[in-house]
Design a protein around this nucleic acid. Structure first.
Lengths: 339, 339
DNA sequence: CTGTTAGCGCCTTCAC
DNA sequence: GTGAAGGCGCTAACAG
């Protein structure tokens, strides 16, 4: 193999500082950790020597000794997805506030890769955030049991495991969206579904099914789509001959991609077709036309996740189920059907 | 109802496996690292015991022993910025391909916070990626010297330091954009500038200044703006009485925010006003109207950064200056001025 | 207050 | 082919 030679940065060790300063390693350690019981003069001297030697304590050694890494891991199905990016953003900020760093892993939408990634990332961190895991419930329960401190986002609490869950009531969101559309007069709707392995997609479909059962006069079709801009863009082919007057996209991104295509083919929104999204990403408001959607507080979700993680790390009681209820934001992309 | 099981945190150590398997720690270590010199039967047995004990080697201990963490750090000015998210995404994927994990730090646009974050993250990683650092050149040189293996994105190579730099020729990009607009007939332009500490913003302004010098008949105004959707949205107030026929936004996000406002106030793009962005983010194509912009290959930049990092970690020669030249993507948001 | 003594969990020369 | 011993750099008991 090629020789993996690492260029080690010439760093002074605690022993060097101790020797030069004429004290013991323990004292240096105390000074570096601001333990007050050290003679101020000696402390100052040690600090000066450390500075002069360009000494930086090894966090690896510190972690090994303390048994704590001050790092948490986060596994997402797709780092390119704005939804997960926003959660990462808020989680990262919250964790940083308590002195923790975040390690990210991208499962690339592979349910099979997840367990390995989770365990792997756990080896370098104190706790793990599983964001919208794609793996099945049994596998998930198994992984959660093995991984220790963790929190799951976008998935219901798993039976038999106490891991806290941060989720969104997607079914209720879909219901609110449907109420809005039906109130507008729509009777034939179409849902562009998301990734088949996504629990939040299933939740949306459950909401859909329930609604249909309660409103026999409605017709709601489903077309497999995806979660990206291009998925939405390509959906037009399947939608155009369907005859629905309103389209519910899996999320805002899909809705925007879809509307991009509609614009090209000359379909007016909402004049010819109503389009709604889900998530209320920052961009939704600036879409053309501004997108009707359901708010999902990604910022709060990241914070909530961190809170549950921190409580576990500190041995405090946790909340097993935190659920956010999305709210309707009616904007211009939805209107009464024509005729 | 649901049976909540307390998640066990007890981890088996290498000694446990050794004892149970009736071998030495050295042998377990060899087996875990797939060193061939172990008797296959013993190896299988050790593996079985490890599996049964749910043994997972401690990466912290491993790192300390090996002197390598197999982790790299990335510092960005703002994790909410799609540009940096895309770079993080591609960097993460590339690094993962070689078995490295990525630690992220968000400097929250604070130049002062950067040096500390960089050094801090370096204590837990083998190398660091500084993405669009806001700190001044002197400070940057100092930090790079102290940090060891690193690469800088979106900034010219720093004098006196050999750290590789991955950048974009923003000045050339602006020139191309201006050529396009002037070719369309525009004579009075307006630039919505980005964060003042951003080197890429300065590069754009340099390109602007150079162009103006070469085209005395043109008028190009600059309005301080920012880098977010809202910054673009709010810019209309300052723009509306300026009289420019074309607006160059700092980036696509600003352009989209700006166009969102234009839509509200009834200004037609490109009929009443031409708007162009920069970066060609995925969304640009789906904007309404589709945005004329300059491509910036964020995906390639992340990969290029990883390549330079890996070369440093392996002691191979590196390339000090990698620069990508953006290309014009003329879409519908730009057209000849009216009259 | 400060130094000494043990590890934290793993890897890696050496001998056998 | 395998085991024993030492060390990676730091912190945490204990003494003194």
């Amino acid at each position: 193999m090629t020789d993996d030679v690492v260029t080690p940065i010439e760093t002074a060790r605690i022993g060097d500082v101790a020797r030069v300063a004429g004290v013991s390693k323990a004292t240096v350690s105390r000074v570096m950790n601001s333990i007050r019981s050290v003679n101020p003069e000696i402390a100052a001297h040690v600090r000066a020597v450390a500075e002069q030697l360009n000494y930086v304590p090894s966090d690896t050694a510190r972690s090994l000794s303390l048994g704590v890494t001050k790092t948490i891991g986060m596994i997402v199905p797709d780092l390119a997805n704005p939804m997960f990016q926003q959660i990462l953003h808020s989680l990262n900020r919250a964790a940083a506030g308590d002195g923790y760093q975040v390690l990210v892993a991208d499962a690339q939408e592979s349910a099979e890769a997840e367990p390995g990634l989770v365990l792997g990332i756990r080896r370098r961190s104190d706790a793990v955030v599983l964001c919208a895991p794609r793996m099945g419930p049994d596998r998930l329960a198994e992984v959660l049991l093995a991984v220790g401190p963790a929190v799951v986002i976008n998935r219901q609490p798993v039976a038999g495991v106490s891991t806290p869950s941060i989720s969104v009531d997607y079914a209720a969101g879909i219901t609110a969206l449907l109420d809005h559309l039906v109130g507008l007069g729509h009777r034939h709707l179409l849902f562009l579904s998301g990734p088949s392995q996504s629990a939040s997609n299933r939740a949306r479909q459950d909401g859909l099914a329930e609604f249909v059962a309660a409103h026999p006069d409605l017709r709601i079709d489903t077309v497999p789509c995806g979660s990206g801009l291009d998925d939405g863009y390509r959906a037009w082919e399947a939608v155009k001959e369907n005859g629905a007057t309103a389209v519910l996209a899996f999320n805002d991104i899909v809705a925007i991609g879809f509307m991009g295509r509609l614009r090209e083919v000359g379909v007016n929104v909402p004049g010819d077709l109503t389009v709604v999204g889900f998530d209320d990403i920052d961009l939704a408001r600036f879409a053309s036309p501004p997108l009707t959607t359901m708010t999902v507080p990604q910022g709060l979700m990241g914070e909530a996740a961190w809170l549950q993680l921190l409580h576990q790390l500190e041995g405090k009681p946790t909340q097993r189920d935190t659920v956010f209820t999305p709210e309707l934001v009616a904007r211009e992309s939805s209107a009464a059907p024509r005729g």
